[in-house]
Simulated assay, not measured.
Amino acid sequence: MNETMSEEFWQGVEQFNAGQFYACHDILEALWIDSIEPDKTFYQGILQIAVGLYHLGNHNLRGAMILLGEGSNRLRRYLPSYGGINVEELFTESVDLLKALQQESLQPMANNKLAENQARLLPSISLSKL
Rank of each mutant, 00 (worst) to 15 (best):
S6Q: 05
E7A: 09
E7I: 05
E8I: 07
F9L: 14
F9S: 02
W10A: 02
Q11Y: 08
Q11R: 15
G12K: 02
G12R: 05
V13Y: 09
E14K: 08
F16W: 02
F16Y: 13
F16S: 01
N17C: 12
A18T: 06
A18E: 03
G19P: 09
Q20W: 11
F21C: 00
F21H: 04
F21W: 03
Y22S: 15
A23D: 12
A23E: 15
D26Y: 06
L28M: 12
L28C: 04
E29H: 05
W32M: 03
I33M: 05
I33K: 10
I33R: 10
D34V: 06
D34L: 14
I36N: 06
E37G: 06
E37Y: 03
P38D: 02
P38W: 04
D39Y: 13
D39M: 11
D39C: 01
T41C: 07
T41S: 11
I46F: 09
Q48T: 07
Q48V: 12
I49P: 02
A50E: 14
V51L: 14
V51F: 10
G52A: 13
G52Y: 03
G52N: 08
Y54R: 08
H55N: 15
H55A: 15
L56F: 12
L56C: 10
L56S: 01
G57H: 03
N58L: 13
N58F: 04
H59N: 12
L61I: 05
R62V: 05
R62C: 11
G63A: 13
I66L: 14
L67M: 09
G69L: 07
G71E: 01
S72L: 12
S72P: 10
N73S: 14
N73T: 13
N73R: 14
N73P: 00
R74K: 15
R74A: 02
L79T: 05
P80T: 05
S81M: 03
S81E: 14
Y82Q: 02
G83A: 03
I85A: 02
N86A: 15
N86G: 11
E88Y: 02
E88S: 06
E89N: 09
E89D: 08
L90V: 14
F91E: 03
T92Q: 13
E93K: 11
S94F: 12
V95S: 08
V95C: 06
D96L: 11
D96S: 13
L97D: 06
L97E: 01
A100D: 07
L101H: 10
L101V: 04
Q102R: 07
Q102G: 08
Q102S: 09
E104M: 08
S105Q: 04
L106Y: 04
Q107C: 12
P108D: 10
M109R: 11
A110M: 08
A110Y: 09
N111K: 13
K113H: 09
E116M: 11
Q118F: 08
A119W: 06
R120S: 12
L121I: 07
